[in-house]
Amino acid sequence: MSTTEPAPRLHGSRCDSCGNVAFPVADGCQRCGQQVMQPIELSEHGTVWGFTVQRFAPKSPPYVPPADGFAPFAVGYVELAEGVKVEAVLDCADFAELEGQAPVRLTAAAPVPRFEVVA
């Protein structure tokens, strides 16, 4: 891992016609059906809209557990300034930190979006 890697960013689309923001990148607008969408970078900061805790190891495949084995993790939706709520893995020291629209920061864009609680 290089320390000079660019900061992760999420890429979405904004509809030319109605302004709706989609994630991931889309070629048609779910709201108005128009097909002219502009690529945009989404906010790196947001708030936790809702979450749960994955208490059991998902079926493998397709799940690939971390090298040190499965541990329960939080998954939820992060509301961004653009209005869209993005599904993400949520990192925190204690799951209770995610309550109350906790502010979070993007830490990875792939394989799925990943955010961590801002201290």
Partner: peptide
Amino acid sequence: VGYGEAGLM
């Protein structure tokens, strides 16, 4: 496929 690998399916 990353959604499956990450345990979100």
